[in-house]
Design a protein around this nucleic acid. Structure first.
Lengths: 141, 141
DNA sequence: TATTTATCCTATAGGTTAACTAGGAAAAGC
DNA sequence: GCTTTTCCTAGTTAACCTATAGGATAAATA
């Protein structure tokens, strides 16, 4: 299941990328436009900023803004920051690898091999989409 | 993240399918072979039975056994019973569809479209694998 | 300089779910 | 009728998710 955090984060990024006219956009505005709890969104945008996806300005006229073009942000990067590992099992995770304590041998583990396939297919999708790609859908022409 | 329930369930099914010589296999044996808590596995096997994947026999010489060939059990069916929906968001689920209360329009939702792609790629994997396929890996030749 | 506006930061409450565990009922075999 | 096994209900514990509170910090402006 996709967490609300990820869902809200994606929507906020999409909103910011669509309104990419230099002027910062306030949390409040995004929260209202996308039906997200203001305080919750606040914490999400903060982690997106800390991870280099967004810039911010404090004070009047402040807010958040895209720091680089949406077309240069692969969905893999966003998903890893918001949702965590793309793999469903740590033993097939590229960035968060961990051995299974119950499993004697990965090479002969049927779950392992299936989950590698699932991971690769998800990676395929995320690698072939940038933030710009998922926005483009909302603006058909 | 894949739940332990699913992971254990898959391992148990793999074990049973590999030892498909008519004689029932006891929970205890599977639990020991696969390093699974006996009581927990008990409840998992029970739901697999209730969902038509396994048969059982009580009393001495009892246990669980495959009810149909592993090659006829698609991974989609197993995953849906053990893990639930394959989709990461209810609004793109084929079998457990629900509307998002915060989202005014699916057609213009960027998350929606991305998640459809992810769902389809996962479905692709699960549809192209049966239980027999994931076991085959453990027996290379 | 004082005030307003906005993000930044820490802590925590409340609910849900996952991962087990306990204990016995029911059925099958000897 | 005793043993062995699955069947069933309920409970426990810990982690995590979602959201909120309240103030610190910084920027703009008057």
């Amino acid at each position: 299941m996709l967490s609300k955090k990820t869902k809200y984060g994606l929507k906020a990024l999409a909103y910011l990328a669509l309104h990419e006219e230099n002027a910062p956009i306030q949390i409040q505005e995004i929260a209202e436009a996308e039906n997200i709890s203001r305080k919750f969104l606040e914490s999400i945008l903060l982690t997106l900023k800390k991870n280099g996806f967004l810039g911010s300005k404090k004070g009047k006229g402040g807010g958040y803004y895209m720091i680089r073009p949406a077309s240069e942000i692969p969905m893999t990067a966003i998903m890893r920051v918001l949702e965590g590992p793309i793999a469903m099992v740590p033993c097939v995770s590229l960035n968060y690898y961990e051995t299974c304590d119950d499993c004697p041998d990965e090479a002969t583990c049927s779950v392992h091999h299936l989950m590698i396939q699932v991971r690769d297919s998800a990676l395929d999708v995320y690698r072939n989409n940038t933030l710009a790609d998922i926005i483009r859908i909302t603006v058909p022409e």
